[in-house]
């Protein structure tokens, strides 16, 4: 049925070329190359310590690669500085794993959701409109506006984490194990929200996870990583049904269900 190249109809949004990052002797990313098609939902899977999160940080420019290039819509993201970088950040947003640590406990929800807009220089009036719109979309009750993040439950907090990542309507959303810190009952709701938001806002998703069941349900393309290297990559069905690498088979065998 569908071939390896089923996404080829869409142009490339993000392309990694030989991205390498060392921490001392540890190779967190070792000549990683892959590309994301616009509109795709790609999973980055691997055990903890395989370099998934480092890649996310590199794409976000929270870290600088030791070698390689990261191209976003054809321009070298790693070469951007100053206001060009700030402008480019508008299109790449992240949902963090731990909604406890990634939301400033001293800020109210309103300030948290406004912050990306402020950083991008959106005018005050416009900001409030956009905050209200994203709250409606992500179904955050309006009375949360003046609450502190630490007063909310884990699921509500992550909803705010999602809303903050989407308020700028970015082209690429990186979600770093966004449900790992949540109760099972709430995990499904956050995943549903992500799916729904992607339909509405049409972003490209890079979903980092070690939970293969979730990946199977959400994504259409899978990249397997181990020790900072890409082991195998392919469309979801092909990879799950006919893994080519031993390591992928191991991962699949170890996954429950």
């Amino acid at each position: 049925m569908c071939t390896e190249d089923n996404q080829n109809s869409e142009p490339t949004l993000l392309q990694l070329e030989g991205v390498t990052k060392f921490y001392g002797a540890v190779r967190a990313a070792d000549a990683v190359s892959f590309s994301l098609r616009r509109g795709g939902m790609t999973a980055l899977v691997g055990e903890s310590g395989s370099g998934k999160s480092t890649l996310a940080r590199l794409i976000l420019r929270l870290e600088e690669p030791d070698a390689g290039r990261i191209l976003f819509e054809g321009t070298d993201f790693t070469a951007l500085t100053g206001s060009a970088l700030r402008g480019a950040r508008k299109d790449v947003q992240m949902i963090f794993q731990d909604p406890h640590a990634s939301l400033n406990p001293r800020m109210k929800v309103k300030a948290i959701l406004e912050e990306p807009l402020k950083a991008q220089g959106v005018a005050r009036k416009e900001r409030m409109q956009q905050v209200r719109r994203i709250m409606e979309r992500t179904r955050i009750p309006e009375e949360f506006l003046n609450r502190y993040a630490h007063e909310l439950s884990g699921g509500q907090r992550q909803r705010i984490g999602v809303a903050r990542a989407l308020v700028l309507e970015p082209k690429l959303v990186i979600a770093d194990e966004p449900t790992a810190a949540l109760d099972v009952s709430i995990q499904a709701k956050i995943l549903d929200l992500l799916r729904e938001m992607r339909r509405e806002l049409d972003f490209t998703l890079l979903f980092i996870s070690h939970d293969l069941a979730v990946v199977y349900n959400l994504c259409d393309h899978v990249i397997v990583m181990r020790s900072g290297r890409v082991v195998e990559e392919g469309p979801r069905d092909r990879l799950f049904n006919d893994p080519r690498e031993d390591y992928t088979r191991e991962l699949l065998a170890a996954a429950p269900g």
Binding site: R57, L60, R61, L62, L85, R86, G87, R89, K90, V92, Q93, M94, F96, D98, A101, S102, L103, N104, P105, M107, A111, E115, P116, K118, A119, Q120, R164, L168
Partner: peptide, 20 residues
Amino acid sequence: ALFVEAARSMGVRTLPLIVR
């Protein structure tokens, strides 16, 4: 802290990042 990194990733400038 993760929330500082989050702010950086959104493009918050240095001074507001420090102040806020």
